[in-house]
Measured scan of single mutants.
Amino acid sequence: MSGNGNAAATAEENSPKMRVIRVGTRKSQLARIQTDSVVATLKASYPGLQFEIIAMSTTGDKILDTALSKIGEKSLFTKELEHALEKNEVDLVVHSLKDLPTVLPPGFTIGAICKRENPHDAVVFHPKFVGKTLETLPEKSVVGTSSLRRAAQLQRKFPHLEFRSIRGNLNTRLRKLDEQQEFSAIILATAGLQRMGWHNRVGQILHPEECMYAVGQGALGVEVRAKDQDILDLVGVLHDPETLLRCIAERAFLRHLEGGCSVPVAVHTAMKDGQLYLTGGVWSLDGSDSIQETMQATIHVPAQHEDGPEDDPQLVGITARNIPRGPQLAAQNLGISLANLLLSKGAKNILDVARQLNDAH
C-alpha cells in the first residue's frame, strides 16, 4: 500500500501541473516587456503551470559599433537563445518575429505568432524639431536608422535628408537623439515604442507609400524545439490566425527572394473581405531603383483552434497545428507568387547589386 502511495506522490510531482516552463529572452527592456506579455497570456491559459524567465545577451546586443547589415552573420539576435533551447536550458524563446530568419536551424520551429501590433515605422524627432515631419525637416538634416530597408525607401522619398546608421537598443538610440546634436530624427518601429509606453515620442507614423515595413514587423514569434510536442501544444494558444497568415505570406515572399538583413526588402499586408493583399518591394541601397507589386488571394481566416493538420510540417519556419492547413498554404503560395513576379521584373539584379555594395563598404 505504502509503495503505491509513493508512486502516486511521484506521479503528482512529475505531472504537468508541477512543471516549471523556462522562457528565454534577450536582456533589453523591450525584450523583457514583450516576454512578460507572452508569459502573462500563458499564465492565464495555464494557471497550474509556473513560468521562469531567463534573460541573456546576444551577438546583436554586444556589437554596437557596426551596422547590422555589415556584421555579416545571420541570427544576430537569436543564436545564443537557440543555443540555450538546444541544450534544454529553456523550453521556449520569445523573439520579435522580424529577427527570426525565414529558414531556422534544424530542430527549431516557430510554435506561435502572437497578435500583431502596429507594424509601421515611426519617426521620433529631436526636441528642437518636435512638430515637424520628415518632409518639413531642414535641408541636409541627419536621420538615424539601423535599417537598409528604411534608408533606401526614405532616401527616395525625401532626397533633402541624409540617413546615417544608429545602433543600440531603444533606450540607447533615444538617448543619442536627445543628448547629442548629430541626429534631427530617428526611425523606429511603432510597436516597440508603444510597448515601452513611449507613445508621446511618436512624431509621425510612416504610411506604406512612404515606407513599407519589415517582414514580420510588429509581431512576436515564440520559438521552440520542433519535436517538443508538449510545448508546441502549450504555445499553440498564442497563435493569432490573421497575423499568422499575413506573416506566412510575408516570410514566403522574403524567403523566395532570398532577402535578408543586408538587402532592402519591404512588405505591406492587409486582410479585407476574405482577401489577403500582399505588397512587396525591393530597392537599391540608395533607393534610386525599385520594383513594387501587389497581389491578392482569397483566404478564409479560420477561428482559433479549428482542428489543424496533425502532421505539422513547417511552413517558412512556422508550425501551427491548430490552424487549418489550406489557408496557410494559400498564404505561402501568395508570397511565392509575388516573389516570382518581382524576380521576373529584375528584382534579383537589384538585390545582387545591393548585396555587393553593402559587402564592399
Results as ranks from 00 to 15, higher is better:
277 Y>R: 12
88 N>I: 11
83 H>V: 11
30 L>I: 02
269 T>C: 15
283 W>K: 02
317 G>I: 10
340 N>P: 01
327 P>H: 11
262 S>C: 02
37 S>C: 11
232 L>A: 07
28 S>W: 00
196 M>N: 09
327 P>S: 05
253 F>E: 00
121 D>N: 03
33 I>L: 11
43 K>N: 11
357 L>W: 00
307 D>V: 08
100 L>V: 08
308 G>L: 11
306 E>I: 11
100 L>A: 03
64 L>V: 05
47 P>Q: 11
360 A>S: 09
119 P>K: 04
155 Q>D: 07
75 S>A: 13
252 A>V: 15
234 L>Q: 08
49 L>K: 08
132 K>S: 12
34 Q>H: 05
301 V>F: 14
128 K>M: 15
45 S>Y: 13
213 Y>I: 03
227 K>M: 06
92 L>E: 02
175 R>N: 11
75 S>F: 00
95 H>S: 05
100 L>W: 05
328 Q>G: 08
47 P>Y: 07
235 V>R: 02
111 G>P: 02
272 K>R: 09
77 F>D: 03
338 L>C: 08
251 R>L: 01
328 Q>P: 10
354 A>S: 05
116 R>E: 05
25 T>D: 02
158 F>R: 09
251 R>C: 03
178 D>F: 06
144 G>R: 07
111 G>Q: 02
312 D>L: 05
278 L>D: 00
80 E>R: 09
69 S>R: 11
290 S>Q: 00
118 N>D: 15
28 S>C: 04
316 V>S: 08
244 L>Q: 15
230 D>W: 13
32 R>F: 07
297 A>Y: 06
68 L>E: 07
29 Q>Y: 08
115 K>L: 11
31 A>I: 00
125 F>T: 03
312 D>A: 12
290 S>I: 15
126 H>Q: 13
134 L>D: 02
227 K>I: 05
331 A>T: 08
35 T>R: 01
20 V>T: 12
298 T>P: 05
127 P>Q: 14
110 I>T: 05
170 L>F: 11
319 T>K: 04
70 K>M: 14
301 V>I: 12
55 A>V: 12
238 L>R: 04
31 A>L: 00
38 V>K: 01
277 Y>I: 07
314 Q>T: 10
266 A>E: 04
291 I>H: 10
298 T>R: 14
113 I>H: 00
92 L>C: 13
284 S>P: 00
298 T>S: 14
287 G>I: 05
245 L>M: 14
330 A>I: 01
55 A>R: 11
105 P>T: 14
230 D>V: 11
297 A>G: 10
205 I>S: 06
273 D>H: 06
104 L>E: 05
199 H>M: 13
294 T>D: 00
264 P>T: 14
88 N>S: 11
199 H>F: 15
148 L>R: 10
45 S>E: 10
153 Q>L: 07
143 V>C: 14
169 N>L: 09
152 A>N: 07
210 E>G: 04
288 S>I: 14
151 A>I: 05
310 E>T: 02
150 R>F: 00
125 F>M: 11
247 C>S: 09
65 D>T: 09
152 A>R: 11
129 F>C: 07
294 T>P: 15
144 G>Q: 01
165 S>Y: 10
244 L>M: 09
280 G>I: 01
349 N>G: 11
140 K>N: 11
223 E>Y: 03
48 G>F: 10
330 A>Y: 00
298 T>Y: 10
59 T>Q: 13
95 H>P: 01
305 H>R: 06
174 L>W: 06
218 G>D: 01
